[in-house]
Amino acid sequence: MSVTRRRFLKLGLTTLAGIGGAMALDGFWRGSAEASEVLTDQKALKAKHWAMVIDSDRLKSAENVQRMIDACHRTHNVPDFGNSKDEIKWMGTETYEHAFPGQENGYLNEGIKEKLFPVLCNHCENPACVRVCPTQATFKRPDGIVAMDYHRCIGCRFCMAACAFGARSFNFRDPRPFIKQVNPDFPTRTKGVVEKCNFCVERLEKGLPPACVEASNGALIFGDLDDPNSEVRQVLATHYSIRRKPELGTEPSVYYLIGGGEEHA
């Protein structure tokens, strides 16, 4: 008996369709354990739009900023490769001219000119990184935090090209040997994925403020931008604030208070 080509193709296609259908049904049936559910933690700090205000007047010295960076990097197992090519940073520092390019002038007051401003992920309302990510490995949560799913990242680095703030770092090497002291409560990353500041979402879930905020002695104010009574809103309502590259329309959620010297409440 010989199988004609037509018949062979028919059989083949039917078989393939059958396998595909079975796999799809299988997926439906075995989705999860029956009668289980997942909830948010009662202790968790909640907001509609997390935002940060950086009061640069309160950051008197470079050490103040470095303390915040160290707190962040220690908490999140950020490696130190000792070279700028492979460098990974969740929070860094820039002078006014580089943090706010286009807003500098030649006659800036020395204090502002020399000051190191903390720079971090802006958790933009319209994040370009999220728009370009081909796998939704980076995504915006309902509370405004732009998060990373390191399980899903394929390491294409499109998000790094898209970010207008240089907030993202790539694991060019295995980071583990370069972490001085591993914090066992937070995962490390693996080589080949992009990482960045997560607004300490893992701490907010436990009811704690972000690590940098905790280490800032009040220079960083963190809260819900959608709540008119929140401290961030109070501070923004009473002080002059700027954001990085607002003209790009990404709507950063990190605000900077510059000069004025007036203490906030």
Partner: peptide, 21 residues
């Protein structure tokens, strides 16, 4: 499957508590 479900719930949806059957 449970670990994958946990991963997505905690990381993507901020749901960090699992209530079992």
């Amino acid at each position: 499957q449970l670990l994958n479900q946990w991963r997505d719930a905690a990381l993507r949806d901020g749901k960090t508590v699992y209530v079992n059957s």
